[in-house]
């Protein structure tokens, strides 16, 4: 791409001519809006942006973006995006997927995409339910979840998507939610700035089949006690009026009360997104807050630098050309052993 001034776009420029067809009240609307708002800020020409999705409610997303896009098949968006990125590393690629698409039918592609570290962004809309097929439990639904396919409650143990991503050596791992647009936009910008595969899990409310699944994290009454928004270099404070904090004791997080005088902000765990071990501990804060009191963290958990697959692939091609010269088709056709019949 040539060095030109950042294009002057508005969010509206990224809205396609298609009617958005999610259910009224769906959390996807907010995510779409935040993505369209952030796009003008990333400094990429519209024609160099590609949205790739699989199957599911969230995967309709590309149809609504006035960029290049592909609504592909169930679970395969990461693999399609891999080929796309190899073919043209200059593109800004966004994979749109859901909990079923990314973690169930497409689980294999997701982990391999993360370990290869293609430079692209994955937005994983997690609503803990299968919406498009009308309400079966998903690989992130909690145990005991009663759905159409689990009338006696789910006996499947759910994935912890962020720990899974960490296990696959993801280089940027973050969590956001549909109900906090400003924070979501911040995370989207960070994800875009990261060179490598950025995984952003977005809690998204399915108001038809799983309404309020994340209510405790989004409702005004509870959210301050159940969530902690982590920022690099800042202590982990949460609770009403900043009344609580997290400390790290023997590699185990614990909630402390900041109002009694026993603990001050100085004692708290300061978030270091470059520390893999601590990030893993943070991702493990995944229990139901009422049960152990630990809040659910949001923000960028982990970030590190690692070479990207597509860059290394093209370096090998460049090196091969440097060493052997640009491919000579006649030499290839002839091979090394020839003879002539006259």
């Amino acid at each position: 791409m040539s060095e030109v001034e950042s294009p002057q776009y508005t969010a509206k420029d990224f809205s396609s001519d298609q009617d958005v067809r999610w259910c009224p009240g769906c959390g996807d609307y907010s995510i779409l809006k935040q993505v369209q708002s952030v796009m003008p800020e990333i400094g990429v020409e519209k024609e160099d942006i590609v949205f790739i999705s699989g199957i599911g409610c969230s995967s309709r997303f590309p149809y609504y973006m006035n960029t290049y896009g592909m609504h592909s098949i169930h679970g395969r968006a990461p693999a399609i995006a891999s080929g796309l990125k190899v073919a043209n590393p200059d593109l800004s690629v966004w994979v749109i997927t859901g909990d079923g698409d990314a973690l169930s039918i497409g689980g294999n592609h997701l982990i391999h995409l993360l370990r290869r570290n293609f430079d692209l962004n994955i937005l994983l809309f997690n609503n803990e339910i299968y919406g498009l097929t009308k309400g079966q439990y998903s690989p992130t639904s909690p145990e005991g979840k009663v759905t159409k396919s689990t009338p006696m409650g789910s006996i499947d143990h759910p994935f912890n998507p962020l720990s899974l991503a960490s296990g696959a050596d993801g280089t940027f791992i973050a969590r956001a939610m549909d109900r906090d647009p400003k924070h979501l936009r911040d995370i989207l910008r960070d994800a875009n700035s990261h060179k490598g595969t950025s995984l952003v899990e977005i809690y998204q409310n399915c108001n038809v089949f799983n309404d309020g699944a994340f209510g405790q994290f989004t409702d005004k009454d509870t959210r301050e006690d159940t969530t902690v928004f982590v920022e690099h270099g800042k202590p982990m404070i949460f609770g009403k009026g900043g009344s609580k904090g997290l400390i790290l004791e023997n590699a185990t997080p614990r909630v402390v009360d900041l109002t009694t005088g026993e603990y001050t902000v100085e004692n708290l765990w300061v978030h270091d997104k470059y520390n893999r071990f601590k990030a893993d501990v943070l991702m493990r804060c995944f229990e139901v807050p009422e049960e152990n009191g630990l809040p659910r963290p949001f923000g960028v958990f982990f970030e590190t630098e690692r070479p990207c697959y597509e860059d290394m692939l093209h370096e090998q091609i460049d090196y091969a050309i440097e060493r052997k010269g640009k491919g000579d088709l006649d030499a290839l056709l002839a091979g090394t052993n020839t003879w002539e019949i006259k």
């Binding site: 399609i80 891999s82 080929g83 088709l329």
Partner: peptide, 24 residues
């Protein structure tokens, strides 16, 4: 050196879908 991008995918499905992505 013929600008061949060979990609050993994680499975058969990724092999074909990555090729579709590349063609796109």
């Amino acid at each position: 050196n013929f600008d061949v991008r060979s990609f050993q995918a994680e499975d058969e499905i990724a092999a074909v879908t990555s090729a579709i992505g590349a063609s796109f």
